[in-house]
Amino acid sequence: MTDTTTDADTKLRIRDALIAQARTELEATNDNLDDELRAAELDQDEPVRPDDTSQSDEAGELKGLLGAAAEAQEGRIAEIEALDVSPADAVRPGAIVGFGGQRFLVGAATPDVEIDGVEYTGLTTDAPIYAAIEGLTVGDTFTFRDREQQIDFLA
């Protein structure tokens, strides 16, 4: 029989690990953004060559992309922080759901994180599979991409 329980402390540790991971990624993006800002600055005391202006323009464009990435990461952190990770009796945002040998924290897109030897991945409510599992409980089956699966874990 599959273990279908995870205590509240473990759910909080999973959420906190995902937040810490997202913050680390945000810090790296911000560091890259700072580097690009410095690279985009032209030295006003030196003659400006056309190549310098071109590189400054490219760095400025990259700055915009990195800034957008940082904003998206900040939004992802806010989504994870806002999740209600109280016990769940049905698949919903904040629930941890397991099927097909994998476990997911529903409500935010995140990379994998390992807690107590178990790997968890974030699953957004925009993901196509979420529509197939929303509201299901342990033991319920669903079909996704012509493959039948069963909810074998829910916390």
Rank of each mutant, 00 (worst) to 15 (best):
A88Q: 04
F104W: 12
D84A: 07
P87I: 01
A78D: 09
G122W: 05
D52Q: 13
L62I: 07
A72P: 02
D126L: 05
V85W: 13
V48S: 15
E58D: 15
A40I: 03
E119W: 04
F104Q: 02
G117I: 06
R76Q: 14
Y120P: 08
A127K: 14
D84H: 09
D89A: 12
A78M: 01
A90G: 09
G107S: 03
I77V: 15
I115K: 01
G135Q: 03
T125Q: 11
E41V: 08
D84C: 05
A90L: 09
P50Y: 09
E81P: 15
T53W: 12
D52E: 15
A69L: 14
E61R: 12
A68N: 13
G122L: 02
G100A: 00
A39W: 01
I133F: 01
A78I: 06
V106G: 03
I96Y: 03
E71Q: 10
T110D: 00
A68F: 10
G107C: 03
P111K: 12
G75H: 11
A70P: 09
A72W: 09
E58L: 13
V106S: 03
G100W: 04
D57R: 09
V91T: 07
D51E: 15
D43N: 14
D45E: 10
G135E: 06
T53V: 14
R38E: 12
D126N: 12
I133D: 05
Q73T: 08
G60S: 11
P128N: 00
G98R: 00
T110S: 13
K63F: 06
R49D: 09
L42Q: 10
A40N: 05
E81A: 14
G101C: 06
G60D: 11
P93E: 02
A82P: 15
L62K: 12
G101D: 03
T53K: 13
G117R: 02
G75L: 05
A59G: 13
A78Y: 00
S54A: 14
G94Q: 04
P50F: 04
E41G: 08
L123D: 06
R49E: 14
P93V: 05
E134K: 06
R76V: 05
P50C: 08
E41F: 06
